[in-house]
Amino acid sequence: MVLGVAKSRLAVERSNWRKDRPFGFVAKPANAPNGEVDLFTWHCKIPGPAGTCWEGGLFPLDMTFTENYPTAPPCCYFPAKFYHPNVYPTGLVCLSILNAEKSWKPGMTVKQVLLGIQELLKEPNNGDPAQQDAWEDIDMNPREYERKVKLQAQRYKA
């Protein structure tokens, strides 16, 4: 029964995304090995916020949902070793809206999550670091942080 709720909600999310998605963003369910659409795994791309050192990048992100969605938040992953203070070395995004014990609300949408992650690129939370190098750079050597972010934006050029 729970699986049906999650699948139905994700089907609605997919339909809503097709009708109203933010400019430059990509989000689509993966294809399962049998060729069917896998609503529980989405491949996304988040544009770097304009006017920041992230600008020009189109950053790949995978969202995985469980059968407990929307009660439980999705897990969101950038590629491993993605450079950002709030991204673990595995690529897992550390953001309060993705934490069921903090700010996750079942009414949150894929669109809201992706916009929240884009905002996190622009405004890292140094009070909740997930990665030592980026956290130290942004705090002690902002120019080095910006240089590394610009290199990463080039690597994921839009």
Rank of each mutant, 00 (worst) to 15 (best):
83 Y>C: 04
85 P>R: 08
72 A>G: 04
33 P>D: 04
25 F>M: 06
91 G>A: 13
25 F>V: 00
49 P>F: 07
99 N>Q: 13
77 Y>G: 02
138 I>F: 04
48 G>Q: 03
144 E>Y: 00
21 R>M: 15
152 Q>I: 10
131 Q>K: 11
62 D>P: 01
2 V>E: 13
66 T>N: 02
125 N>P: 09
38 D>W: 00
65 F>I: 10
149 V>L: 09
14 R>D: 07
102 K>W: 02
83 Y>V: 14
136 E>T: 14
5 V>H: 02
27 A>N: 05
23 F>A: 14
107 G>E: 12
18 R>Y: 06
106 P>W: 03
76 C>Y: 08
151 L>H: 04
72 A>Q: 05
85 P>F: 08
157 K>V: 05
79 P>W: 01
63 M>A: 05
17 W>Y: 08
35 G>C: 03
50 A>H: 05
112 Q>R: 14
19 K>M: 06
1 M>K: 04
31 N>G: 07
147 R>E: 03
66 T>L: 05
5 V>W: 00
46 I>T: 08
85 P>S: 04
31 N>C: 09
109 T>G: 13
110 V>I: 15
46 I>A: 05
25 F>A: 06
45 K>Q: 15
75 C>N: 10
94 C>P: 07
112 Q>H: 12
84 H>Y: 06
115 L>N: 12
76 C>P: 12
75 C>F: 11
74 P>W: 00
37 V>T: 15
124 P>C: 09
108 M>N: 15
35 G>L: 04
98 L>G: 01
155 R>E: 15
150 K>Y: 02
71 T>D: 07
46 I>Y: 02
9 R>T: 09
143 R>P: 02
36 E>V: 08
52 T>E: 09
51 G>S: 08
58 L>Q: 14
47 P>L: 03
